[in-house]
Amino acid sequence: MHDDHVILCRCEDVTLGDVRRMLAAGYVTVEDLKRQLRIGMGPCQGTTCGLLLQREVASFLKKSPEDVPIAKARPFVVGVTLKAIAEAADEE
């Protein structure tokens, strides 16, 4: 299948082709790729694409995946409405 038809990040619609072009242009860290392509920035926060991206960067750099740092984990694990948080805070 063509690289541009393989979706890595389904939240932000980023394809394998997008990632490979950015890698070739010199953006070779997960943090750089995330910032330039929005990969992993959507509602699932990289749950689906994180490991795929790490593997892709590893194979480009000819490293093993565990030697490629992934994006920093931050809240939230799942999306929460701001209203629910505000209400919970009011009850405290």
Binding site: P43, R74, F76, T81
Partner: peptide, 17 residues
Amino acid sequence: VCKFLPKVGELHAIRQW
């Protein structure tokens, strides 16, 4: 945000940094 922009409060927050 719920006080000033109540509609925005209905959205899911997805990341905090």
